[in-house]
């Protein structure tokens, strides 16, 4: 009984922190401090958190270098949009989210099975090629309206929905990483041959992690397609895959909190640079080079590589959420 109480305590605090963050932002929106412009930034950050956390699962934790995450996002966005354009109301929204995630997961399985035998840069290039193929297909088929994309998409995402999906997916992935299957995935990153010799079926868990990552990217795409009115194949090109990878590496490979901080910081930088249209990408490029030269291990480094530290990081997550809401207050 005593043990159980102790276990519940941090979980309770974590839960409390999450609720406080939700309530503060909701309040700011209700009283009109956070207008639509800022909220659009929050939505982008939220979607990027899901993308970064899920790519981190694949690349940072399982050690499989993917450069095609935007491909899964586009599948989620298109499947969801196709559903919401046909099925009205909240049922359509929920069905769309499910369709988006499931379709991305299925493609993740089909792509992952053959390609995950590849290592390092070869896998990166194969996933990049896969994402380009997906983009070209969406550009040329009728149901997605080609290069012009789909427009007039119904809007569903508000703060509550966004929060539910972002927090939900993050918690589920953190839980997963704390499980035996999660540890099996991490052991693949550490040493494939040793993992295999200890009874870990590496193909199976590489594919598992890839499918979970693809599913989450699909959900992120579906959120995009239910907040922004237009989706185009070019939105989900190579540049988007790179953006996600940059968040993950900037935050720290193998650090969930790092991915969250990375998404928030880069989202804010991008918002601040928005007024400098001409030089925006030039500054972004210089930032990338400078950050990589001076801190190649990212903000959080590999501090969560150990699972015991992940536990502590779970508590940091709380603090982080507090910080994030403070930032938005200012």
């Amino acid at each position: 009984m005593k043990v159980k109480n102790l276990m519940e305590k941090p979980a309770f605090r974590k839960f409390g922190g999450i609720i406080v963050l939700y309530a503060v932002v909701q309040l700011l929106i209700s009283v009109g401090i956070l207008n639509d412009y800022y909220f659009a930034t929050i939505v982008t950050i939220g979607i990027n958190v899901i993308l970064a956390v899920s790519l981190n699962l694949i690349t940072g934790f399982t050690g499989q270098f993917s450069l095609g995450h935007a491909g899964f996002m586009s599948i989620g966005a298109y499947f969801c949009a196709i559903v919401t354009l046909r099925v009205p109301g909240i049922p359509g929204f929920l069905l769309g989210m499910l369709a988006g995630g499931a379709a991305a997961a299925v493609v993740g399985l089909l792509v992952g099975l053959p390609t995950l035998r590849l290592k390092g840069d070869y896998l990166a290039i194969a996933t990049l090629g896969m994402a380009e193929i997906i983009r070209i297909v969406f550009q040329n088929i009728e149901i997605t309206n080609g290069a012009a994309g789909l427009s007039n998409l119904p809007k569903f995402v508000n703060w509550s929905w966004l929060f539910l999906f972002v927090a939900g997916i993050t918690v589920l992935i953190v839980n997963f990483l704390h499980s035996s299957i999660g540890r099996a995935c991490i052991s693949i990153r550490e040493d494939e041959i040793a993992a295999e010799s200890m009874g870990i079926n590496i193909t199976r868990y590489k594919v598992t992690s890839f499918i979970i990552g693809a599913f989450c990217a699909g959900i992120a795409g579906a959120l995009y397609a239910t907040y922004f009115p237009i989706i185009k194949p070019d939105t989900f090109g190579f540049a988007k895959s790179v953006d996600i990878l940059v968040i993950v590496v900037f935050g720290g490979l193998g650090s969930i909190t790092g991915s969250i901080v990375g998404a928030v910081v880069l989202g804010l930088i991008s918002m601040l640079l928005a007024s400098w249209t001409d030089l925006r990408m030039v500054i972004y490029a210089i930032l990338l080079i400078v950050i990589m030269i001076f801190r190649p291990q990212g903000l959080m480094g590999s501090r969560e590589f150990s699972l015991a530290m992940l536990k502590r990081a779970g508590e940091q997550l709380n603090g982080l959420f507090h910080k994030k809401s403070k930032k938005e207050e200012n």
């Binding site: 035996s180 540890r183 099996a184 991490i186 052991s187 550490e190 040493d191 040793a194 993992a195 200890m198 870990i200 590999s302 590589f305 150990s306 699972l307 015991a308």
Partner: peptide
């Protein structure tokens, strides 16, 4: 060994 993981995790894996 899984050198960036804890001793306990090495065994649990």
């Amino acid at each position: 060994l899984f050198k960036d993981l804890t001793v306990l995790d090495n065994v649990r894996i």
